[in-house]
Design a protein around this nucleic acid. Structure first.
Lengths: 207, 207
DNA sequence: AGAACAGGTCAACAACTGTTGATATAAGTC
DNA sequence: GACTTATATCAACAGTTGTTGACCTGTTCT
């Protein structure tokens, strides 16, 4: 036993958590069984359940461990748009199927009452709020729209596997996406906007 | 029995389909049981299964019936951005919880191998491709990004119930979202872009 | 040695899922 | 009346799922 260096003892609990992150990052909350996770670790189902109390608490721990704000907002403010889009586009959904990006767990686990109730809180606390802070904005709406866009791209790319997003040229896609994010980053923190009509926003086909 | 007017006979099959649309538009594919649908119609499980062959085929029929291109692309090209954002923002996710918007089924049913494989094809065929056509674009990438943004907003608003999107002023949100859609509508159909570096897109905090 | 305790296993529970075979009921056709 | 077809039901299957109680096995502390 060394004194100075940390024990770095990898507990079974940690291995369960990592296996859970891997599973929930690839399949939906409902499609991920505790037995699958147990098999990955090589232990009994009962123990993975007991280690975290319930499936939902295990999922909550996995989301919390994946969605750490410092992973997204460590860089300079000027690089934010590029950094964020990189997080979504970094992993090629077909080529790098075995890698795991921090946002994958939100994208894949979605849509079941239990999963949604866990995600609701964490997404706001660990992503939208830090993002709005970084942008020095009082309103969280633009940050929420950025989150929406990134989430949508993540789902269409790596859950649905929509061709135009999977096969598109990476640089061109990155450029187009980053422009949208940057535009939202620069959005005016406009007040409730008392009496301005919804104002149809026209589409100019020729740029 | 009248001659001229159509029989308008509402078959049990139709009632099953409508109940399925309602269920899948509110809960995930996996969380929606055939027994729930059967109970809504007031019949036995066996019959809802037999009427469509399998749960997956019933889901496919429900998606097909919900996601009809003419619902989204009937208006003028100039109103497209406003129309599309209206489809996502029209229904207040908490106040109008009992209404069903055509896009809800895509948003809520997401994320399970079976559901994803059904959605993959239909979303491209019934939304992205018609949208790219309406925009007279050769590339489907901008249309896919629009779909991403709308899907993301839908999920954050009505699945996760993220506060900044639910409570935000409708007009302001509509304005901000429509601007993004319009900007993507006007995207240049740029070629694979041979040798341009990813080009960090800066964020100007002060607009 | 003996007690205490975390780490881990085993078998089983009750509830649920989509699916299927056998069967009834009713209407329309020959 | 007999035969077919669509409509619908019943009961049950086989396979899941998360969860629980009882038990075993080492280690550590006293």
């Amino acid at each position: 036993m060394q004194r100075e260096s940390a024990p770095v003892k990898i507990t079974t609990r940690d291995r369960i958590l990592n296996a859970a992150i891997a599973r929930f990052s690839r399949h939906s909350y409902e499609a991920t069984g505790l037995r699958d996770i147990a098999a990955d670790v090589g232990i009994d189902v009962a123990y993975v359940h007991r280690s975290f109390g319930s499936k939902e608490r295990l999922f909550a721990a996995a989301v919390e461990a994946s969605l750490q704000p410092e992973r997204f907002f460590a860089g300079a403010k000027a690089d934010l748009a590029t950094d964020l889009t990189n997080h979504v586009l970094a992993r090629d959904p077909v080529r790098d199927a075995d890698e795991i990006a921090p946002l994958d767990i939100v994208v894949h686990s979605l849509s079941s009452p239990e999963a949604a109730s866990v995600l609701r809180e964490v997404v706001v606390r660990n992503f939208i709020t830090p993002l709005a802070n970084k942008l020095e904005m009082s309103s969280q709406t633009p940050a929420s729209l950025i989150a929406s866009l990134l989430l949508g791209v993540g789902i269409l790319r790596s859950v649905l596997g929509v061709a135009p997003l999977c096969d598109a040229d990476r640089a061109a896609l990155q450029q187009m996406l980053a422009e949208q994010v940057a535009s939202l980053c620069a959005a005016k923190p406009q007040e409730p906007q008392v009496a301005a009509a919804p104002a149809s926003v026209g589409v100019e086909a020729e740029a």
